Amino acid sequence: LKDRYVSLAKNLKDVNEINNINAMVTRGIMLALEGEQDPIAEKKFREILKIIFSYNFSDNDSNRTEK
């Protein structure tokens, strides 16, 4: 995945887009941490995880055709 991240970063020419991605990741981590104490935050974090894991990413082992 490292190569894919480097490729993504090279293709993101707009600094604001990179900042938005970083902000989303940071907020996700914060929501997970808040969820330890706040049931509403935990529920929202679980909803986000459900959405993320419902998508079949191309790096998912079940999608790979190479052996």
Rank of each mutant, 00 (worst) to 15 (best):
L1R: 11
K2A: 12
D3G: 09
D3R: 14
R4S: 07
R4H: 00
Y5N: 15
V6D: 10
S7D: 13
S7C: 10
A9H: 08
K10V: 00
N11K: 06
K13L: 10
D14S: 03
V15L: 11
E17Y: 03
I18L: 12
N19T: 01
I21M: 09
N22L: 11
A23L: 08
M24I: 04
V25K: 13
R27F: 01
G28H: 02
G28T: 08
I29P: 03
I29C: 01
M30N: 05
M30V: 08
A32V: 09
L33Q: 11
E34K: 11
E34D: 09
G35W: 03
G35N: 04
E36F: 06
E36R: 00
P39T: 05
I40L: 06
I40S: 06
A41Y: 10
A41F: 00
E42Q: 11
E42P: 00
K43C: 03
R46W: 04
L49A: 12
K50P: 03
I51D: 09
I51T: 14
I51A: 12
I52H: 04
Y55F: 13
F57Y: 11
F57D: 01
D61L: 11
D61Q: 12
D61K: 11
S62K: 14
S62E: 14
N63E: 11
N63R: 10
R64L: 04
T65L: 14
T65H: 15
E66A: 08
